[in-house]
Structures are given as structure tokens and as C-alpha cells.
Amino acid sequence: MTDMAVKREPAAAPVEPPPPRRRRKRSAWSAAGSAARVTATMAILFFVLFPIVWMALTAFKPARDAFSTALVFTPSLENFSAVLGGQSDLTGALLNSVLIGAATTVIAVPLALLAAYAFSRYRFPGHRSMLLAIVATQFIPGVAIALPFLTLFRSLGLIDTHLALVIVNLSIVVPYITWLLKGFVDSLPVEIEEAARIDGCGQVSLLWRVITPLAAPGIFVSAVFSFLLAWNEFLFPTFLSRSDATTLPVALMTLVLPEGVAWGQMAAAGLLVMAPMLVMAFLVRKHFTEGMTMGAVK
């Protein structure tokens, strides 16, 4: 993002002011143009934000008003008390989501950092093909992973355990953040490592005392992505959990009752699913495009 701005700067200078006769015509155009642009931008903001705002509003409406489209109402915490310990308690699922997300992150980040360091600092036989294989794993359909684990975990008695979901989450999280962290390690100057090595720093303490602190921003970003990917995952817990280890997105299904969906509670639970991820995504927003396109867009 920063080098983009740098490239733009010098271009502004050589543009000569247009001759005065054309100017009036252009400013009329640009006034109309910028009004259109502002309107279009407002439409974009509406498209992007409205579903989020609407869910937040519905969550705070008294339960009987879930269907009202009124914008002014007396806020109530009814829906939240229903899903947090009340009639349709989702506290267990919320804790499962936190636990599974945290465990996935704690396991995935060190593994990925080591691998990212190897890809970044060494050239070795198989470098390119292994990197390509890591990218390719992102294209494996979830069912092809979940089905064999369903039968394996059944025979091991691991169905509906946190461990099962953490293991399966690694299949998407480790490759993704390995790629992300490789970008961060690439950008660290090699000189510091060489200096540390000359001072007699061994490989383990180099990784722990030099690389880890330097890559701290990257580690933070990849920890956020690990947690986010594990938190939003739906297919794996659908296959591999029943009730004890169910995560929050899957537990939303319990609000679909025979007499219809409990929309007020759904909105409150939805806000619990959504709000932490919105904050996290906002914090690492610059890195979404890099991760998704494996660096094709910078």
C-alpha cells in the first residue's frame, strides 16, 4: 500500500493547468461527476453496512418486535439473556468457539513461522514445488477432508471433541498463514541475522530471540487470521461435532425451531458471532488481499 502512494506522488507535478476556456466546461462536469460519485459511494456504504447494522438493531429489539422495521425502539437485552444462559443457551458453543479458535492459533502459528522461515531464507531441492503444494491445499473441498476424518474419528472415539476440530482446522489454517508469514519474513533484513550468527547465536535462539520479535507484527496478523478462519468454520463442525464440541456458527442452527426461526435470538447470537470478527478484520484489513491472492496483488 505504501509504495503505491510513493509512485503516485511525482506524477502530480508535471500536469499543466488546462487552458481557461476548457476549464469552465470541465468544472461543470466535475461538479456533476463528484455529486454522482458521492451518491454512488453512499450506495456502496449502504450495501456493505446495512446487513450488519440491521442485525445489530434487531438484536437489541424486544423479542416480540424482531419483525418490526421501526428504526426507533426501546433497546432491550432480552435476546442476549435468552442466548446467554436463558431458554436457548449458546454459552457452551461460545466457549467451544473460543477454545477451538485459540488452540488452533497456538498450534498453527509456531509451525507456520518455522516453515515460513525455511521458505524465505533457504534455497533447497523441492522449494518451489513444496510452496506450490502449500498454495494448492487451499483448493481442496472441505468434504474431501471431513468425510475421511468422520470415519477415522468415529473409530478413535474422537467425534464431538475439541481435539478433532482443532486437528481438522489445521488443514486450512497452517497453509494459509505459512504463506502470509513468508511474506513478513521476506521483508526482514538478513543482515541482523548474520550479525547475530557472528556473535555466536545458535539457530534456536536466533529464531526465538531475533526472528520472533522482528516478525511480531506478522505473527499478530497470522494469529488473527488463524482465529478468524477457525471461528467462522462451518463445514468441519457440522460433520465432526454433535453437541459437546459444537461451535457458535453451527449452534445457530438450534435457533431454527419447528415453529419458525427465533429471529431476535438469531440476531443476538449472530452479533456474538460477528462482532469480534469485525474488529479483528478491521485491524488486519490491509493483509486480506495479500493472503487471499498469495501475493499476486500488492
Partner: peptide, 15 residues
């Protein structure tokens, strides 16, 4: 607006 564009992508697809 650009700063807010990422928000929908962070919402769980199931939700």
C-alpha cells in the same frame, strides 16, 4: 469507505 469494505467478508458465511 475503503477502510470498511472488508467487514462483510469477515462475517461467518453461515451467518
Amino acid at each position: 469507505t475503503k477502510a470498511l469494505l472488508i467487514l462483510p467478508f469477515a462475517v461467518a458465511p453461515a451467518l
